[in-house]
């Protein structure tokens, strides 16, 4: 009850910031991977994270839905607010964080079940209070697949195993299965890195399509992709945020020398 009430108030005053971090530092054992990250990521926009390998961009992304904690030897200081709620507060439930913050991985990872069951997996986990009828579930499946532009392709093969789809379709499915629980934020960890150019274009187009409806944070190795498919861009280096600006601005008139050097391909 309490939860619903707070959700309602959150929906009324849509927060300007989807993700807001203060002095976030992260250690893998004794190795410090993130240093005092202070970021404000706007709601409803696509923000890309770029930087050379090992700069901490994936680590940061993975700490926003706390999937990092699977490793067991991760320590975190500072705060990450998602829709004004610090997800590292003691009374926060992991399951709720992951409902609010969906994640798409580098390699498409559909579960070894049917397309339909994949879409409904998260929905069924988070809506255990009542039984949904088949028709209601069908609607959810159709709606989610339409949002990722996959419905026409798979509407007749919903019972087929999701792992039989092409990689591009699998990745779209992985995005689609996040949508039924209405997440506030979508995290994408190099979502196109295992796709061919055609698949990359299709998924990029989809991400662009979702702009405005969800707050999207996307890690990419591919600078051209950041430029094409994001509205804001964050450049990270050695676990620190160097620059955060509108994508157009960052790529045309970078304020820091490191950013300029990276964009011009002098390292990374």
């Amino acid at each position: 009850m309490n939860m619903q009430a707070s959700q309602a108030t959150q929906e009324q005053q849509v927060p300007e910031m989807a993700i807001h971090t203060r002095d976030l530092s992260l250690w893998y054992g004794t190795f410090q991977a993130l240093h005092n990250i202070n970021l404000d990521i706007k709601a409803g926009r696509i923000t890309s994270l770029i930087g050379p390998s090992g700069c901490g961009k994936s680590t940061f992304l993975r700490s926003v839905n706390r999937i990092n904690e699977r490793l067991g030897y991760v320590r975190i200081e500072g705060t990450i607010d998602v829709n004004n709620q610090n997800i590292y507060d003691e009374d926060v439930e992991l399951v709720q964080v992951r409902k609010q913050v969906g994640m798409v991985f580098q390699r498409p990872n559909p579960l070894p079940a049917s397309i339909r069951d994949n879409i409904l997996y998260g929905h069924r986990l988070h809506n255990r209070d009542r039984k949904y009828s088949r028709a209601e579930e069908d609607d959810i499946v159709e709606d989610s697949l339409k949002q990722v532009l996959l419905w026409d392709k798979v509407k007749d093969i919903l019972k087929r195993k999701a792992t039989e789809l092409s990689l591009e379709e699998q990745q779209k499915l992985c995005i689609a299965r996040l949508l039924p629980v209405k997440p506030a934020v979508l995290l994408m960890d190099e979502p196109c890195s295992s796709l061919d150019p055609k698949g990359t274009a299709a998924v990029e187009e989809l991400i662009w399509e979702l702009r405005g409806k969800y707050s999207i944070l996307i890690v990419t190795h591919n600078m051209a992709q950041a430029r094409r498919a994001s509205e804001e861009c964050i450049f990270m280096l050695m676990g620190k945020v160097i620059e955060h600006a509108d994508t157009a601005e960052l790529f045309v008139t970078p304020k820091h020398k490191e950013t300029a050097d990276y964009i011009e391909g002098r390292y990374g």
């Binding site: 999937i67 992991l94 709720q96 992951r98 990872n109 579960l111 070894p112 997996y121 986990l125 299965r177």
Partner: peptide
């Protein structure tokens, strides 16, 4: 392991990961 990671990222608890994903697989 990516099945476990996927299920966990979708909000499954340890037991749900095992019961709904790992054991069937």
């Amino acid at each position: 392991d990516r099945y476990r990671e996927a299920a966990e990222a979708l909000g499954a608890t340890r037991w749900q990961v095992i019961y709904k994903t790992v054991l069937p697989a």
